[in-house]
């Protein structure tokens, strides 16, 4: 029987961690783009679009991410295409993070003081100008800490893609466990690697929140 050293385990897990990072980046950026679209639907004037965006968010926040992954995996197959795990994983995670980011950013836009809307309207600004010059710059500043905080949720969410067969850190942990019979060490290490990815983001989110809040209050 082959003997596995600790370095063998660590090396294999680190190699798989690339895919966790890549999938997180794709989901976060893709989710951000879809969320931008949804945000404008959600806070816009069109009643129907508002309705669609609202229930999109409700739907994705009210169902498990695992189920969304399963439905993407088997649902995309219904169009007669062969669905690789990475495609279903990316697709579901983008839609899922879009829902959460829309809700976070909507809160940020709505927390901009109402007088700002009225003031900019009284300066003769149109909707687009109000958004571009008055509301978005202020909302962006409020949005940074919770958005960074949500990136942690995305990284943790990618762990579920192992269940539909995408080989990232968690799946690699299972594979390495099956080869080495050392679940305690392997899953401990996997947890530590996730911690190493997520903790700096959580911490910076907290620090940013404190800093930006102070700046916000001094106005």
């Amino acid at each position: 029987m082959t003997e596995f050293t600790l370095w063998d385990i660590v090396r294999n897990l680190l190699l798989a961690m690339r895919w966790t990072v890549l999938l997180s980046l794709v989901s976060f950026i893709g989710g951000g783009l879809v969320a931008t679209l949804l945000l404008f639907m959600r806070i816009g004037r069109g009643r129907f679009l508002r309705f669609v965006a609202k229930y999109y968010v409700e739907l994705f926040q009210g169902t498990p991410l695992l189920m969304q992954l399963f439905l993407a995996f088997f649902g995309l197959g219904l169009f007669g295409i062969n669905v690789p795990a990475w495609l279903a994983a990316g697709f579901a995670l983008i839609l899922w993070s879009a829902a959460f980011l829309t809700e976070i950013w909507r809160g940020c836009v709505e927390s901009v003081f109402k007088g700002q809307w009225e003031a900019s309207a009284s300066l003769g600004m149109g909707y687009v100008q109000q958004m571009r010059y008055v509301i978005i710059p202020q909302a962006l500043k409020i949005a940074i800490p919770p958005t960074v905080g949500f990136s942690v949720q995305v990284i943790k969410g990618t762990a579920l893609t192992s269940i539909i067969g995408f080989v990232e850190l968690s799946k690699a942990g299972t594979i390495v466990t099956n080869a080495t019979f050392q679940p305690f060490t392997v899953y401990g290490l996997v947890a530590l690697f996730y911690f190493a990815l997520c903790w700096p983001l959580s911490k910076s989110s907290q620090i940013l929140e404190r800093k930006l809040n102070v700046a916000h209050r001094s106005h």
Binding site: K156, A159, S170, G173, V190
Partner: peptide, 13 residues
């Protein structure tokens, strides 16, 4: 530790 690791890994551990 718990807040920065996936639930799946906690469960497996």
């Amino acid at each position: 530790l718990i807040r920065n690791t996936p639930f799946l890994i906690q469960l497996f551990f």
